[in-house]
Amino acid sequence: MALLETRQLSKNFGGLRAIADLDISVETGSIHGLIGPNGSGKSTFFNLVTGIYWAERGSTVIFGGRDITSLPSHRIGAMGIARTFQLLRLFQEMSVLENVMVGHHMHVPYGLFTTILNSGHVERRDAVIREEMMDLLSFIGLADYADMPASELSGGQRRLLSLGRAMAMKPRLLMLDEPAAGLSPVNVDRLLDIIMRLKDRYGLTILIVEHILKVVMETCSTVTVLDYGRKIGEGTPATVKDDPAVIEACLGQEMNDDEVRAMLHEGASSGR
């Protein structure tokens, strides 16, 4: 069964079609990879699904059987979609613990009036939440840094924190936007290990955008390839890897020097 399904998903930026009639379905419990060259619409797809961008009319996004196309992002988050960002977007001046506590926001068991009138109750509830979040932090290995501002973490730790913050939402679908970008090979392995353990522990479905092919090949059960906002291939990592259309889009067509010269000439004469 598909947990996330898009039908005819489109997004235009001015005249540019960033995503065009995209049908993707992410199976429950799978790890679904999304690859493609830069500017192929992977991040736009993430932003459309999580309500940061509005999709064009006629698009449909279905999550767990419910239409979420026009919901604002906090409602989508509340339905069980968590994501990380390519540029992380951590709450820099807040502590590591506070970062994950924000992720836990929608599960907070008290309202505004309790907050103002009964801060003792709030304190006790927050203590419970804090304990739970410390658990999560030790799971991803950041418990020691709980009181540090997020801005003072190292690059790898920041990536872990953004993962932890997303996990604090207790999502059903976790969308990872280049989680391993900029990590050393050792840290990539460590991150993959943590992601796999999180998946098993919480029964997650994962949608992952990644440039590091090793990550995609080793973890994904299905891979969708995008180019210019269209789907140009889909299947298991092994089949996608040998698809000529995919190789052309990702690596460029093999061509000889004459062809390159001709192309350059064409570009110059058309005034671009």
Binding site: P72, H74, F85, M101, H105, Y110, E123
Partner: peptide
């Protein structure tokens, strides 16, 4: 010092990330 305060700070730090993490 409550969840509301943390939500305020999250909005100050990054509006988009705050929204995605379930803050109205």
């Amino acid at each position: 010092r409550s969840a509301t305060g943390r939500a305020f700070m999250a909005i100050r730090e990054d509006v988009i990330a705050a929204g995605v993490h379930g803050i109205d």
